[in-house]
Write a protein that binds this DNA or RNA. Structure first.
Lengths: 248, 248
DNA sequence: GTGTTTTGGTACGGGAACGTACCTAAATCG
DNA sequence: CGATTTAGGTACGTTCCCGTACCAAAACAC
């Protein structure tokens, strides 16, 4: 693969690293297409690669023994999958699956990335800062699940997708959202109607259009913003808001 | 303070580090008593110290704008507080508060610990492995909150306390547990009665006695064990079970 | 010992979300 | 084109947990 193909990436982490750190990983990066349903991390299997998405929304989830799945967070072009290896965990405790949209990802073998991190403190700390932001996202997901009604959790989830995708149209079915939120399909339908009633979104078959993002944010309230703000502080401004205002 | 006072610690992380790494941090460690209600990490404030508890159960929580609190995990003598600084986050995103039992903790200033981690890769990776186990704990808490009825979440929470405290008696009031689980006090009372009915526990005023841990574990089901097992794999055997069986 | 506080037991009505089910409309397939 | 699949709308009864409230018993203070 010609080096030029990799010279830029839409992935925010890779955009943020210094030229020296880029030189350290670039030889081992490898662009791959992302398709819906593709599994980037298999639970309880060794983590062989880390992926830096350049689009799409990837859902990180816990797989339970009965085969059901609980989403614990989402990752898109602002992050990466496979980070547990940075924390010394060779076996993936989670599943990571491409869930919305398509695009591509840059992929690197675990060993190569770990070696690069060993050599460069700045690379290491950048990637660890991402782990921190994901951990904050998890914390907020936890709080939101515990206290917020479904419409609010739904608003938050739509906003997180919106931040990670181009444009205002998202290909999402009610059934699919219901799996992500861990609620009934019919509950999603009802909640979407509530949001639609405020004019924040419009639903078409298999698609949701964000019409008024501010309203969606107002609806999500505290559930949305804290994690995104931390990302802005620790790594780089991000999301459809452009910049998050500090101190929220 | 005489060095001998610090020569051993009940904290599992500190027990696990090598002699060289111990020498790196020991001069900066400082033992402090832990009292109920003590705050070890103030949300949205700089993290000045890291604490390695030698007893007690510390609850890590999100504080919301309305002042309410949601627990996202617990830490005891198997871990530490203040780890976000290891991930490049100087401001504590969470609150950490001593919630059950007392005891002591070894404390170290953030700068000294970061310097030691910069020098020793083995120390760094050990502490990061703890971060990983906490992240797994959060993931399971998330899954449990979403899918499990209160009795199961309660069982899990009691087991996690039991693992971190001496003996089978725990000083816990229903009101207190209700705050930790984010449910009504009366719901805790009812759920405790269910557990008491199976003979797993016995409740006295302000105290809960674990009578049959196996039954409690059976009741908790999948909610308990995964995170603990990972701790055993990544760091050291831990908990009242002594060792967790691999491959659960 | 008496009064006060804390803790726990219990009850009642209400609301959010659930499981299930059935129907329509849109898209896809042959 | 008609047949089939997929997505979405809606309904009904149910369950879990909530908010609130009130009371009894245990611990504590003086």
């Amino acid at each position: 693969m010609p080096a030029s193909a990799l010279s830029t990436s839409r992935n925010l982490l890779l955009q943020t690293i210094s030229a020296e750190d880029w030189a350290l990983v670039e030889p081992y990066l490898d662009r791959m297409p992302l398709e819906l349903g593709q599994v980037l991390a298999v639970p309880n299997e060794p983590i062989e690669h880390l992926c830096f998405p350049e689009g799409a929304v990837t859902s990180v989830g816990e797989t339970l023994n009965d085969g059901s799945r609980v989403e614990i967070g989402v990752v898109g072009l602002e992050g990466m999958t496979g980070w547990p290896v940075l924390l010394g965990c060779k076996i993936s405790p989670h599943e990571a699956m491409v869930q919305v949209g398509g695009g591509s990802a840059l992929r690197i073998e675990t060993g190569h990335l770990l070696e690069a991190c060993r050599r460069s403190e700045s690379l290491r700390t950048l990637l660890l800062r991402f782990v921190q932001t994901f951990s904050i996202q998890m914390g907020r997901t936890l709080a939101s699940n515990l206290r917020d009604p479904v419409e609010r959790r739904l608003s938050r989830w739509l906003l997180m997708c919106h931040d990670r995708l181009d444009g205002d149209e998202m290909e999402l079915t009610h059934k699919f959202i219901s799996i992500m939120l861990g609620v009934r399909r019919a509950t999603v339908t009802d909640s979407l109607h509530i949001l639609e009633g405020t004019g924040a979104i419009r639903g078409q078959r298999g698609r949701i259009l964000v019409r008024d993002r501010k309203k969606l944010e107002a609806f999500a309230g505290e559930a949305y913003g804290f994690a995104e703000d931390h990302y802005g502080r620790l790594i780089a401004p991000f999301g459809k808001n452009g910049t998050f205002t500090p101190g929220s």
